[in-house]
Design a protein around this nucleic acid. Structure first.
Length: 422
RNA sequence: GGAGACGUCGCAUAGUCCGGUCGAGUGCACCACCCUGCUAAGGUGGAGUCCCCGUAAGGGGACCAGGGGUUCAAAUCCCCUCGUCUCCGCCA
């Protein structure tokens, strides 16, 4: 949620942000108007209520024979109070609706435009070349008997898979490597619930434009989370957290569920885009003044992971129109996938500034002793999808795959994944 | 699945039957000051969150799990939801 004070005092800033996102700046005027209506309604209700409270004290103190007469007088006042209260409720829900249409205020320097208008910040590593025809990750995965799409479809449908044998171990190895690095950087591991209540899903901002992406269990009124970010953000909801010793950092380990409703026909081969996968997610609660620095740190830890795994990648500054409502800036790290001749997203890190925290009511105590919303940031540290880039990048002509050194410790020292012959 | 109890200001509790004197007492913890003097005690005072008006000082309102209702008036009465706990049954 946008800061209502900012909305009142600097609507032009928010309009500019809406334009960068390619969204209507008229929403800003509507929200400002709704705010004025809301505040007028509150003032009216409160003065009536004050009158009623004072009257109530008189009634309480009055002698018995005067009570009946006073009570009769108060009835009219009570009706007006009820009426005014009704108008406050209406004005507040109008305001909420108006404000919810506004995305977070984009940080200076974020490129304007949509999906294709990102800026490449840097490219790291050499694009691998092969003196043979490289196989795609699924072909390799099948040679290694590591990925089974057919049985995934038989059991659960399209976009489901089994990771088998070395495939299963490879996923755990990547996740564990991420976890060890998170621990070294001071993160507290959390294995999170993957079913959450509507207000948590709403608070993290996922029920807006992307609500069709989310699995919902109507009988239980619970949502399946597409990332542990949801549970990690909800973890401290309605709390005043202590940031006096620096940021609170959590590494959330969970299975993620996504309907992929808008992507029929895209990435249908292999495990690039699946309904269910695992992910290790970094999540930070920080003082808003420290948010941009923390964003750089999260990005740095992501890059260290990719570098350790010998992957070639680029970092992009995602354009305003492709941020989602909560993020004020987002960096994606995309790894080179040889058989696609393209960079594909492996990690994403978002700075949500105080937007998410405001909706979830997460605050900290400032030096002056006042409370203020915290900033929240999140970023991927490892996911199932990384298997794609690792298999393809480190493959050899015979279908075997060299295990990056940093990963060997997590695979019992294994140096090469060999095709399974049967 | 069946039966019941409970949810109050950081923590622990009082208040709820009998609605107004309760935005709410007490203990512990906390902060300031005083006293005393040595591994602690005593005294006085202060302190919650959110919102509205105001440059400010200040004023007003809301909040007793959440929502709705009854009433001139609700922590207190009624209904619903959520959560916690206990017992029984059932399954791991």
């Amino acid at each position: 949620m946008i800061d209502p004070v900012l909305l009142r005092e600097n609507p032009e800033l928010i309009k500019h942000s809406q334009e960068l996102r390619g969204e209507s700046s008229a929403f800003v005027d509507e929200a400002v108007a709704a705010d004025a209506v809301r505040r007028a309604a509150i003032t009216e209700y409160e003065s009536l209520r004050a009158e009623q409270n004072a009257f109530g004290k008189q009634v309480a103190k009055a002698p018995k024979d005067e009570k009946a007469w006073l009570v009769a007088q108060a009835q009219d006042l009570a009706a007006r109070v009820k009426d005014a209260n009704q108008r406050v409720s209406e004005a507040e829900s109008e305001f909420r609706l108006a404000v919810q249409r506004l995305g977070n205020v984009v940080i200076d320097g974020v490129p304007a435009g949509g999906e294709d208008d990102f800026i490449v910040l840097r490219e790291v590593g050499e694009v691998p070349s092969f003196d043979f025809e490289p196989r795609d990750h699924l072909e390799i995965g099948e040679l290694l008997d590591a990925i089974d799409m057919g049985r995934g479809a038989k059991v659960s449908g399209a976009r489901f898979h089994f990771l088998k044998g070395i495939g299963a171990r490879l996923e755990l190895a990547i996740m564990n490597m991420g976890l060890d690095r998170a621990l070294a950087n001071g993160f507290t591991p959390l294995i999170t619930p993957t079913l959450v209540r509507p207000e948590i899903m709403q608070g993290t901002g996922f029920l807006g434009a992307h609500s069709e992406e989310i699995y919902y269990l109507p009988d239980d009124e619970l949502y399946l989370t597409g990332t542990s970010e949801v549970a990690l953000a909800g973890y401290h909801s309605d709390e005043i957290v202590d940031l006096s010793n620096g940021p609170l950092r959590y590494a959330g380990w969970s299975t993620c569920y996504r309907r992929e409703a808008g992507s029929h026909g895209k990435d249908t081969r292999g495990i690039i885009r699946v309904h269910q996968f695992n992910k290790l997610e970094m999540f930070s609660y920080v003082d808003p003044a420290d948010a941009e620095a923390e964003h750089e740190r999260l990005l740095g830890w992501q890059e260290e992971m990719l570098q350790a795994l010998g992957l070639t990648y680029r970092v992009i500054d995602v354009a305003a129109g492709d941020l989602g409502s909560s993020a004020a800036r987002k960096f994606d790290v995309e790894a080179w996938v040889p058989t696609q001749g393209a960079y594909r997203e492996l990690t994403s890190t978002s700075n949500c500034t105080t937007f998410q925290a405001r909706r979830l009511d997460i605050r900290h105590r400032t030096e002056s002793g006042r409370t203020a919303p915290v900033a929240t940031l999140n970023g991927t540290l490892a996911t199932t999808r990384w298997i794609v880039a690792i298999l393809e990048t480190h493959q050899q002509a015979d279908g075997s795959v060299v295990v990056p050194e940093a990963l060997r410790g997590y695979l019992g020292g294994l140096e090469v994944l060999e095709p399974v012959t049967r």
